[in-house]
Design a binder for these strands. Structure first.
Length: 492
RNA sequence: GGCGCAUUGGUGUAGUCGGCUAACACGCUGCCCUCUCAAGGCAGAGACCACGGGUUCGAGUCCCGUAUGCGCUACCA
């Protein structure tokens, strides 16, 4: 039996990182087992579903490198089949028409309302229409009286399934209400739609968030009523906010949206790697894993049961997302093959009008060397166009603290740096080694420490107090620009 | 309220059949390297394994209870 799994998001907004991780785990399992990874858009809530959201989900998956097999499925296309299935269950006596008028529910306090109602309601099986004679039910329906369709859950017994992550799950039927399958307006509801679609798509393993763990019993009941084989289930621990609450866009903003990571300079492989480590751990303990390695090591049995906290600091721009995610991204930026990084840097520079076509041909060697030089201390791709701006443009800003610390603190510096510029003009050839020799010699002649000139020069050439070795910067910037910047009056 | 699930340092996790002086990664501190910042190397702080009982020669690991958190309990998904 070939494995068939699916990712089934509802297109009601951006792609949440928790959903992205579900997608990743499904994808990993499919690739690991040689199975199929399918994508189904659960757009049954037509008011809230948007095409834009669908597009962003597909883009997000693409960005993460999760390719799906077969045709994209839209759940709304199957509404007729869902309805038909519900009617069939009524015919077979496994479901019944409920003519109770629809209750108006305030959308705001549903949670509270639901809990409140559940508290007072004792018998789940007291619906007067549950055992209405078939003739009467048919007659009322034929007369046009509106009705919802509910599953007839047996009053006795229990359902049971073996979750691959959470183990054996049992739930007494008494705890399960006669769930509504079809609304009185004919709209099929979530539990029905999911089950029918999973059956028709031939899903063998349902891998999804733990928030569906208790729903699963209802779905098992439905599989049984429909006479279909029950798939295997694997529920994933949830990803929580630092206060252990739900991670939501409304409360936590853009950190929860996958696109944020793309837009803020994450390397897809790095974020994928980070996401994989949330709730799952590789057997060997090695954490930096390529796509191929993730596939190789992945197993559903390795998934943890406790919810994970996604740690970020809302008021700290430097640590705007999880520390480990940031570290992972930096790790990828400095260690990944340069050839793979270059196009990403190109995209970043282009978006900020720092890209020059020469970097692709005449100056490609220079571009490689420069990126390789500066990548070591960057955390995101964004850093190439911000902190790295001085390498790609003469129009860059000076950091106030750097100017203060490396230039203004010594009044001789302005003159010294001009002198250094003169000296560098005569150096032949102009390399890291020769410029270093020249600078040190110049420092000796002037009777100052080399460090004074080095740090001053770094700030003159890059606007910053930190960065790569000064002599590597001379080399990369070249004699002309180095000299010109040393003489620049801008920071003074 | 009912039912379910979870609970190992700040965070992510490892801890097979009970022997742990509790391991790894991120973060944090210090030192080395050094022209700065990183990276790298080294060292270190930080967990009475939620709490209380029990079983056992011995429990993070098994059992019971409590607490806390999360989830479900909708004609939402």
């Amino acid at each position: 039996m070939t494995v068939r799994v699916r990712f089934a998001p509802s297109p009601t907004g951006y792609l949440h990182i928790g959903a992205a991780r579900s997608a990743l785990f499904n994808w990993l399992y499919a690739r690991k087992t040689g199975g199929k990874f399918l994508l189904r858009i659960e757009d049954t809530d037509l008011q809230r579903s948007t095409e834009e959201s669908t597009r962003s989900i597909i883009e997000g998956l693409e960005w993460l490198g999760l390719d799906y097999d077969e045709e994209l499925v839209f759940q709304s296309d199957h509404a007729p089949q869902h309805r038909e299935a519900a009617y069939r269950l009524v015919e077979e006596g496994k479901a019944y028409r409920d003519f109770t008028p629809k209750e108006q529910r305030d959308d705001k306090d549903v949670k509270q309302d639901v809990a409140e109602r559940a508290r007072t309601q004792v018998d789940q099986r007291n619906n007067p229409f549950r055992n209405l004679p078939k003739e009467e039910s048919d007659a009322r329906a034929a007369a046009g009286e509106p009705f919802a369709i509910r599953l007839k859950v047996p009053p006795e017994g229990q359902t049971r399934f073996d979750d691959i992550v959470y183990g054996t799950q049992e739930r007494s039927h008494a705890e399960i209400e006669d769930l509504v399958l079809l609304r009185s307006d004919g709209h099929p509801l979530y539990n029905l739609s999911v089950v029918i679609d999973d059956i028709s798509m031939g899903i063998t393993h349902v891998i999804r968030g733990q928030d569906h763990l208790t729903n699963t019993h209802k779905q098992v009941l439905l599989y049984e009523a429909l006479g279909a084989p029950v798939p295997r289930f694997a529920h994933l621990p949830l990803i929580l906010a630092p206060n252990k609450g739900k991670l939501s866009k409304r409360k936590h903003g853009e950190v929860v949206s996958l696109t944020t990571y793309r837009d803020r300079g994450f390397v897809p492989a790095a974020f994928r790697n980070f996401l994989a480590l949330l709730g799952w751990s590789p057997p060997e303990g090695k954490e930096v894993l390529s796509k191929e390695e993730l596939v190789e090591y992945f197993s559903l049995e390795g998934i943890n049961r406790a919810n994970a906290i996604f740690n970020f600091h809302e008021n700290d721009p430097r640590r705007w997302t999880d520390d480990k995610a940031l570290w992972m991204n930096a790790e990828y930026i400095r260690t990944m093959p340069l050839e793979e990084l270059l196009p990403m840097v190109k995209t970043e520079l282009r978006a900020n009008k720092l890209w020059r076509e020469e970097y692709d041909d005449d100056d490609s060697e220079w571009f490689r060397k420069t990126v390789d030089l500066i990548r070591e201390r960057y955390f995101t791709l964004k850093d190439f166009s911000t902190q790295g701006r001085a390498y790609f443009s003469d129009d860059f800003d000076f950091d106030d603290a750097a100017v203060q610390k490396n230039l203004r603190k010594d009044p001789r510096l302005r003159e010294l740096l001009n002198g250094l510029a003169d000296k560098l003009e005569t150096v032949e050839p102009f390399t890291a080694e020769t410029s270093e020799a020249a600078l040190r010699a110049f420092a000796d002649e002037a009777g100052v420490k080399a460090g004074l000139l080095i740090n001053g020069a770094r700030t003159m050439l890059t606007g910053q107090a930190v960065g790569p070795s000064m002599f590597e910067i001379f080399d990369v910037l070249g004699r002309e620009r180095s000299v010109q910047r040393l003489r620049s009056g801008i920071p003074w």
